[in-house]
């Protein structure tokens, strides 16, 4: 518990410089570039262009390092994101996104490269004060099957407006399957965004850093 609280405090202090939540489609005719460092277990870079508000196309590169056996997988995929449903409410917005992709993967537990199949979804709900999101990202091949499930709950200490610096405090629970990690990984994060830039920083309960940066233009 002390470690978790220390992680929360350090996360707040580490915060440098986001919408309350990362979405695979930011806006129509918009480009999104995102990089994430997930506590040493997962690293990912994504770039998408959205011709419409309900579709984006792009590529993602992900590296996972198992906390259990040191197994490493490097996966590159071409991916399409689709907004399945959006609810525009008076003071809130909710979305369901799905995605799918194909790519290639290499690893230190198998030879050569294998075909990777990627599928996932994200459901989110956001007001100017709170947000909730649940995301699941599955990668499968003939040599592995791994899924990363991420639950986030955030609240804003003040209601920001457009052009203001927005601040969010986020609690995250993440579960890895496919031999990547045992148990749920908890993290406390601070997320700041302004205009099209977002930076997020924090620590897991084990004291490992989690960082993310995203730019929309």
């Amino acid at each position: 518990m002390l470690k978790f609280l220390a992680g929360t405090g350090a996360g707040i202090l580490l915060a440098l410089a986001q919408s309350a939540q990362a979405k695979p489609i930011a806006f129509a005719d918009g480009t999104t570039v995102m990089a994430e460092y997930g506590a040493g277990t997962m690293r990912e870079v994504q770039a998408f262009y959205a011709p419409y508000y309900w579709l984006s196309l792009g590529a993602a590169v992900q590296r996972t390092d198992s906390d259990i056996d040191g197994g490493r997988r490097d996966i590159g995929t071409l991916r399409a994101n689709y907004l399945l449903k959006r609810w525009n409410l008076d003071d809130a917005q909710a979305n369901v996104f799905v995605w799918g992709g194909l790519g290639s993967a290499t690893g230190n537990r198998f030879r050569g490269s294998v075909l990777d199949r990627n599928a996932g979804f994200q459901a989110d709900y956001e007001t100017r004060k709170v947000y909730f999101s649940l995301m699941s990202d599955l990668h499968e091949s003939e040599r592995y099957s791994q899924r990363i499930d991420t639950l986030q709950l955030g609240f804003a200490p003040y209601e920001h407006d457009y052009k203001d610096l927005a601040t969010w405090f986020v609690v995250q629970a993440r579960d890895y399957t496919g031999g990547l990690r045992r148990g749920v990984e908890w993290a406390a994060l601070v997320r700041l965004f302004k205009g099209g830039a977002w930076v997020e920083a924090g620590l897991t309960a084990e004291g490992k850093p989690q960082l993310m940066a995203m730019f929309n233009f």
């Binding site: 919408s19 309350a20 979405k23 930011a26 806006f27 129509a28 918009g30 508000y53 959006r86 609810w87 525009n88 409410l89 008076d90 003071d91 809130a92 917005q93 956001e126 007001t127 100017r128 920001h160 457009y162 052009k163 203001d164 927005a166 965004f193 302004k194 205009g195 099209g196 929309n216």
Partner: peptide
């Protein structure tokens, strides 16, 4: 406008 809750919405 309904659904306006974030800066990215506004940006788009």
């Amino acid at each position: 406008v309904n659904g306006l809750v974030c800066a990215f919405c506004a940006q788009g």
